[in-house]
Amino acid sequence: MNVFRLTGDMTHLASILVLLLKIYATKSCSGISLKTQELYALVFLARYLNLFTDFISVYNTVMKLVFIGSSLAIVWCMRMHKMVKRSYDQELDTFRHYFLIAGCFLLALLVNEKFMFPEVLWAFSIYLEAVSTIPQLVLLQRSGNVDNLTGQYVFLLGAYRALYILNWIYRYFTEPHFSRWIACVAGLVQTALYADFFYYYFLSWKNNAKLQLPS
């Protein structure tokens, strides 16, 4: 564990807590893409299959349970909670995320570290996570103004993977047989997808203005 990875995990956890705060405090999920939340739940379920078979550390196990539990709770909330689901921007959240799932699964079958079931699923979860935020970014551009908590949520979500890239660079130089090119390339793509959001988020912070994404 290094400072980049720990900070990355804490940033990821913070993004989930901000999203839970938004939904719980405002009883609203306006501006949040249900499709992105479903993709994240799938990412965690596909990646953390080894939760009960390979014990790595208490930290690792606890965080996996938190990520799986929170992502499923958010999907449940947005689908079933009568007050929350009323605020869901159904007509704006129309990105065809099933194509992302199919595409990532096909890619995982072709490009993986070992053609074994757990490895293919792990690669699938890495590729899927890289594109999971697309429905959310599309929704933000369509919905124009973004409320503060939603903006902070998306910012933290993007920032965590950027910190993971620093973690991979650090491990590459400090660990002899470290090779994580699948996660690294996918992480670069994932972070690059946030580039224009980061730019407008920075502008809104610098000018102390409301976050506006050009539609």
């Binding site: 990821h12 080894n50 790595i56 990520f67 570290e113 993971y164 047989h177 470290f178 090779s179």
Partner: peptide, 10 residues
């Protein structure tokens, strides 16, 4: 190999 230890990250 890399496949085993790649599971130490979240």
């Amino acid at each position: 190999g890399s496949a085993e230890d790649s599971k130490d990250e979240l």
